[in-house]
Design a protein around this nucleic acid. Structure first.
Lengths: 192, 192
DNA sequence: TATTTTAACTAATGCGATTAGTTTTTGTCA
DNA sequence: TGACAAAAACTAATCGCATTAGTTAAAATA
């Protein structure tokens, strides 16, 4: 009955690793508990439920993504900054498929905490697109455009939905250019 | 012990309705069996497992989407046809959130049967983009672009990930125009 | 009409999340 | 230092679910 020194952070981090290895849907409290050499009910001293743990996983992921994306735009501006953020997000999502799934599904938990996890990220996006003379309302729309595409594309990649693996990177490259060119085009034609 | 007259199709259709109402993750064999006034093990005379049922749900969804999208492009061509398909897909995905989830997740079951469910759809997409003078290889990339965006955006909408519901439609409208303009732009600059 | 097949049934297993109640460790305060 | 309170582990038990095995009755077929 020696204490292991668990706490929520440790559990979330281990769960993140397991989710990435085995898939989010395949992790159980039993599996996590075994990792720590502990009985599964013991985890309830640190978490409220499996759903609670998955929500923590979601927040953990968004915080990591935020950090990664903010780093990616240091010293870059305009369309290049947007491009860099797309690549950084894609890299995180495909490197961390389990955590990414939690980020995806648990959008439904959107609340104050979630909001805070991505506050800076939104701030930076507004700044970047602001320098491109895109009005605020349009920026809100375009963030959704990128988010939809990036989450969707990464999800398809992670689930092996694309037959030919060789060209997945090329498809992503082209997709990003299409999005950026589309924004430029609408801007030029003053449709934005 | 009167027979109810179940078969796989009936079960799949009922499961589709339940999934749309309650969410894919919340349907159980018990719930489906109750709907038919039958014990849950009885379902095993018609399906192999819950996973098998979800796979059927995925195929069912893709077939419905195919039909809907093919209808949407009757009498329309070029970029207008692409636009029409985007809207048709989005409508199906948001009208049928449960089935759409099955379509999404069960990409991993990609096999001959799945392939057949969307064969015509791909054919039509190639035809449409072919008339826009887009080379075949690029068409393959662009289908992925659209698929990523459409599935991702619909997923975010279905999960309530966007705060302000009022402007969700506007964001979609703009997103589609960005994509179409992006393709046009790259084409004009001969980058495709 | 007899027989085979099919589709329902009941009973049972096993797994996972979760809860309740118990014991032991650890940290705190007199 | 020693009692005590809090925290973290434990065991035992419940409940709901998917799934399997074996049984019975209805339908289809010969």
């Amino acid at each position: 009955m020696a204490r292991v020194g668990l706490d929520k952070n440790v559990i979330v981090e281990r769960a993140a690793g397991l989710a990435n290895e085995r898939g989010l849907d395949n992790i159980t409290l039993k599996i996590i508990a075994d990792e720590f050499g502990v009985q599964s009910p013991s985890l309830y001293n640190h978490i409220n439920s499996l759903d609670d743990l998955k929500k923590s996983l979601m927040l953990y992921g968004w915080k990591q993504v935020e950090t990664k994306l903010l780093l990616a735009v240091v010293g870059v501006s305009g369309y290049d900054a947007l491009r860099a953020m797309c690549y950084a997000f894609y890299e995180y999502a495909t490197d961390n498929p389990g955590v990414f799934n939690a980020m995806l599904w648990y959008n439904k938990f959107q609340d104050e905490e979630t909001h805070n996890a991505t506050k800076q990220l939104f701030g930076v996006l507004f700044k970047i697109m602001g320098t491109l003379n895109i009005p605020e309302e349009t920026i809100n729309h375009l963030i959704r455009t990128f988010r939809g595409f990036l989450e969707g594309y990464a999800l398809l990649v992670n689930n092996g939905a694309f037959g030919n693996p060789a060209s997945i990177k090329e498809s992503f490259d082209l997709s990003v250019e299409v999005l950026l060119a589309g924004i430029q085009n609408l801007e030029r034609e003053s449709k934005i």
